[in-house]
Write a protein that binds this DNA or RNA. Structure first.
Lengths: 205, 205
DNA sequence: CTCCAATATTGACCGTAGTCATGTTTGTTC
DNA sequence: GAACAAACATGACTACGGTCAATATTGGAG
């Protein structure tokens, strides 16, 4: 963590961005994303409408900003879990993801925003967030292959993609269905186990 | 297929809707969804702007309409494949889905529209399209369990969800990445096989 | 302190999705 | 065919996301 000295100007800029961001989040939580207008946000943040666009080129960028902050946290958490000294372990892999899902359970509204931007960024290979996730996924899956938890004859990137889609969809469905269709963390655990063990039946060569 | 007699009024109504729809599709294909304005559509369809909203309450509803038409076709195709006389067969299951993916390869623009509405409807359990897919999925998976291709100790709805997320994501990523990141049908086949066989490695109990 | 260029702020303005009051057409009843 | 109601068409209007030229603020150089 490098501490960079900021000039007064830069400090003020950050502060304004934060003020706009906080105002936006409060309104989004209270009334929803679509229902909140940019004028309401800027009024609450006590700046002119145009100022908003100096900090966030589009309304959606506020969500992306939120999402990035949160994903960085999660990333650090997962990276610490897997790049630490403790030997890699398959069950810990699942439990780490299950654990991250706690967040989504906290605030469904917020979670919806974050998930939707995450799901968009998943497709965009230019997106730095996406790249970091791919890298993290490839590393973790590689480790799992090394210890024999995952089969070694499958492309780690493919396994990462499969698990990512499973994870994202399980959360997305849970978030968009009212009332919640299942106990989220339990369901993630079950589905992960299911694809790890395989869908194959007895009559299948 | 029941043929319903339509009054002149109803015929005219259908015709107008079709005219608007066709105009919209031509413009969407040529210039993209966002870039096409409703006024352009109505001009091309030779109706007033307001008329558009008598037929499609939102701009996106045009896509939903397209999507519904197409999904019905696919549904019929898949249903015929699995409710026919031929004995159910696991490889045929995979190949049927692979085959459907051909469509997405035809027109990437159109496919993007259809997939995005499909992915939204996946979450919405009220949506009739979603319900029909769930039903079809449950039936097919049930058959596969009966013949021992899929393990019988897993909830068919869960297996359906897992496969659906895998399928949708694989296509989505393929559609949103330029140039295409993989040969679509081959990738679907590989991923399906992967989750059917399981991700488990040798060192895994 | 004065001047200046860089940077940040502002709100009038624009384009477009969607609304709605009004006008028009259609089918029906006598 | 006249009178009427229901269904449908219409375009002026509103609301909001986003642009941009004009204005204000900042910090540094002389």
């Amino acid at each position: 963590m490098t501490v960079i000295e900021l000039t007064r100007r830069e400090r003020k800029k950050e502060e304004t961005k934060e003020r706009i961001f906080n105002a936006a989040m409060k309104l989004f939580k209270a009334r929803g994303f679509e229902e909140t207008t940019i004028e309401e946000i800027t009024e609450k943040a006590d700046v002119a409408k145009g100022t908003f666009f100096n900090y966030f080129p589009r309304k959606e960028e506020v969500l992306r900003y939120l999402s990035e902050q949160w994903l960085e946290e999660v990333e650090d958490k997962l990276a610490a879990e897997f790049k630490g000294d403790a030997p890699p372990n398959g069950d810990r892999l699942i439990e780490a993801f299950v654990d991250v899902a706690r967040f989504y359970e906290q605030d469904r509204n917020l979670a919806r925003f974050i998930l939707s931007t995450w799901m968009e960024s998943i497709y965009d290979e230019e997106d730095p967030t996406c790249q970091r996730w791919q890298a993290l996924g490839a590393f973790v899956v590689g480790e799992m292959q090394r210890i024999g938890y995952f089969r070694a004859d499958a492309d780690p990137a493919r396994i990462t993609n499969v698990l990512q889609s499973l994870y994202a969809f399980t959360i997305a469905k849970w978030l968009h269905t009212e009332p919640a269709p299942y106990e989220l963390r339990q369901e993630i655990r079950t589905r992960f186990r299911l694809v790890i063990e395989g869908l194959k039946g007895r009559g299948n060569s």
